[in-house]
C-alpha cells in the first residue's frame, strides 16, 4: 500500500459518500445517471468475486464490501425508492450502456492477463469501469446546470483513478516485477474521459461560478 493508492481509495470512498449524502439529504437523484450506477455495481461484482476466496487484508475486504453494498444500495434507491426515483432524469439518461457491457466483455475475452474465468472477469471489470462514467458525463451535458453535490461526486470519481495512475507509476519503480498494463491503459482512458469535466470544474471553482457544461 502506498500513499497514492490509499488517497485514491479514500477519494473513491468520498465520492460514494457524497453521492449517498446527496440522495439521502435531498431525497433526489436528479443529475445522477442510473446507468452509470448500474455499470459500477457490475464492475464491483465482476472484480470482487475473489472476496471470499482470496483474503488480502482486512482493509481490502472491508472496502470491497462497502463498494459492493453502496453501489447496489444506490441502484436499488434509484429504482425502487418512490421519492428518489421520481427525480430520476429518465428522459435524459438514455445512453445505451448495454453496448458498453458487450464491448468490454468481448475485449476482455481477447485481451486479458490469463485466459481463465476470474482473469477474464477482472479484465472485463477494468475495461467496464473505464467507460462506465460515459452515461453520467452525457447526462451532465444534457442537463446543463449541475448541482454542487453532483459536481463534487463526479470530480472525486474522476480524481480517484488519476491517483491510481500515480500509484501504478510508484509501484512500477519500487517493485521489481510489477506490471499492471491492462489496468494502467484503462485507467489512463478513464481519467482522460474526465478531462473536459475537470476543465469546467476548475473554471467554476476559479470563477466561483456555477458549474456549467456546454451542451
Amino acid at each position: 500500500m502506498n500513499v497514492f493508492r490509499l488517497t485514491g481509495d479514500m477519494t473513491h470512498l468520498a465520492s460514494i459518500l457524497v453521492l449517498l449524502l446527496k440522495i439521502y439529504a435531498t431525497k433526489s437523484c436528479s443529475g445522477i445517471s442510473l446507468k452509470t450506477q448500474e455499470l459500477y455495481a457490475l464492475v464491483f461484482l465482476a472484480r470482487y468475486l475473489n472476496l471470499f476466496t482470496d483474503f488480502i487484508s482486512v482493509y481490502n475486504t472491508v472496502m470491497k464490501l462497502v463498494f459492493i453494498g453502496s453501489s447496489l444500495a444506490i441502484v436499488w434507491c434509484m429504482r425502487m425508492h418512490k421519492m428518489v426515483k421520481r427525480s430520476y432524469d429518465q428522459e435524459l439518461d438514455t445512453f445505451r450502456h448495454y453496448f458498453l457491457i458487450a464491448g468490454c466483455f468481448l475485449l476482455a475475452l481477447l485481451v486479458n492477463e490469463k485466459f481463465m474465468f476470474p482473469e477474464v472477469l477482472w479484465a472485463f471489470s477494468i475495461y467496464l469501469e473505464a467507460v462506465s462514467t460515459i452515461p453520467q458525463l452525457v447526462l451532465l451535458q444534457r442537463s446543463g446546470n449541475v448541482d454542487n453535490l453532483t459536481g463534487q461526486y463526479v470530480f472525486l470519481l474522476g480524481a480517484y483513478r488519476a491517483l491510481y495512475i500515480l500509484n501504478w507509476i510508484y509501484r512500477y519503480f519500487t517493485e521489481p516485477h510489477f506490471s499492471r498494463w491492462i489496468a494502467c491503459v484503462a485507467g489512463l482512458v478513464q481519467t482522460a474521459l474526465y478531462a473536459d469535466f475537470f476543465y469546467y470544474y476548475f473554471l467554476s471553482w476559479k470563477n466561483n461560478a456555477k458549474l456549467q457544461l456546454p451542451s
Binding site: R47, I56, M63, E113, W122, P176, S179, R180
Partner: peptide, 10 residues
C-alpha cells in the same frame, strides 16, 4: 499466485 500477480488493488 505470485504476490505481484494477485489483484491486491481495489
Amino acid at each position: 499466485a505470485e504476490e505481484s500477480e494477485r489483484h491486491d488493488e481495489l
